[in-house]
Design a protein around this nucleic acid. Structure first.
Lengths: 250, 250
DNA sequence: TAGTGGTCTAGACCACTGC
DNA sequence: CAGTGGTCTAGACCACTAA
């Protein structure tokens, strides 16, 4: 009875969990593992591919296969929208504060523009018209970790810092509040999928790894959607936290 | 230049998205696709494996590879804990109402017991002692879709319907309210990982597909954790929805 | 029984790394 | 240069399905 591919996955995964292979260390080479398990290198390679797609291991051509460091950056959805959180986070809002609290160095690149949004977005915003979009690339201590694109109806954003590169203290939501459309209620929908080519390249992940796609809708006190934001994050680097009261006010 | 595995994935994915391959229909056989793309069957098989791990396609030995029906059952975390939702949902709480609204037939199997919880759970509950656990297997129109295990401190649950198979109208949270420990605040943490063998078998998914692992903590008005519940759901069948107010009361 | 997908093999060629 | 992982091949055997 040959040793199956799944057994090799389980065996290596267990060896990592138990500490026999330390994070940062290099696994035995594929031909070596093939000999150890008594299988061909193809079979070992397939097993390592699965572990790579989980983010447990990072095979590198010419170097070897290294065990990845721990997992998760926590994204706390409720806390991000707290006023206090935003104002302590420096000029760019929640992402900065979030990462600094974890001892990481946040950095963002913003691209601002106008145009017609994807149809799914324009349906929710209701206005048939154009939007201001803010496309952000976000880094933690130099490593790319998140993509986010915000859409705000052009009629709201025009003439305010929302349409500028720097939205000022407190970020986008504080500017919406200045305009009398401060968001009072948020919804997020979380999905998991494989990244497209652009996302995979930016996040430095493989096409068979997984990303969260998070769609947030911010509504003002009149119930109008004033911003839609789509986030893309690698699932093996992030965990998502939510908090809400038992009986939400309507 | 050989046609690469990634191109085949992209090509088939696109053919499905564009409707050239309809949900429920069967793809051309692997040897046929191999001829079409000019590659070996191994390469086609690998490409289909990836599409299978995404849940886009379901290869079946002896039958063929069928295109999967649409994706998502929505799990609305905030709405689940609304009193009105619970009471309209029949006897077993939120899950039933959730699925009925989607036109699916809910069914649950519950196993109730006492014992010492996993260490991570007992840390949060604070009490070093035992718990009542409620392990549920949940089905939608006969198909297994969710695993959930609740932990409630034994001191709280003892002598109440919480420790029985049927928790009565409104479910577990209504019984906690009866005891003066009705939850007023919820937190959930979402992670994505591969299923263990038991989960894969119950959910009828492959070991390289992905599940959400959701950890919910329910707290009473004193801030005490009165229940911890862990959910396991296949990522390709569910999307998660959250809703919360801008300035949450402390 | 013929045809399907699941899996493993032995070998090959490649791009890349580090000495 | 030798050694690494990435990928593809041609073939094999298996378990399973449907006729």
């Amino acid at each position: 009875m040959p040793v199956s591919y799944g057994q090799i996955v389980a065996s290596i995964r267990e060896a990592i969990a138990s500490g026999r292979y330390q994070p940062g260390s290099t696994l035995p080479a594929e031909p070596e593992l093939a000999a150890e398990f008594g299988v061909s290198r193809s079979t070992v390679n397939r097993a390592l591919s699965l572990l790579r797609s989980e983010g447990l291991v990072r095979p590198q051509q010419g170097r070897g296969t290294v065990v990845t460091y721990g997992p998760a950056i926590r994204r706390d959805a409720a806390a991000r929208q707290q006023r206090g959180m935003r104002e302590h986070g420096g000029s760019r809002g929640a992402f900065d504060a979030e990462l600094r609290r974890l001892g990481l160095e946040p950095r963002s690149e913003v691209e601002v523009g106008r145009g017609s949004p994807p149809s799914a977005v324009s349906e929710v915003l209701g206005t048939g018209g154009d939007v201001v979009f803010r496309r952000r690339k976000m880094y933690a201590s130099g490593e790319p970790v998140q993509l986010a694109t915000s859409y705000v109806p052009l009629a709201l954003a025009e003439g305010s810092p929302i349409a500028e590169r720097d939205t000022g203290p407190g970020g986008l939501y504080s500017r919406l509040a200045d305009l009398g459309h401060g968001p009072v209620r948020f919804t997020e929908v979380v999905q998991v999928r494989t990244p497209d080519d652009d996302e995979a390249e930016f996040l430095q992940i493989d096409p068979d790894q997984r990303v969260y796609e998070i769609t947030r809708i911010a509504r003002d006190s009149a119930g109008r959607a004033v911003e839609i934001c789509m986030h893309v994050l690698a699932t093996h680097r992030w965990e998502l936290a939510y908090e809400w009261p038992a009986e939400s006010p309507t």
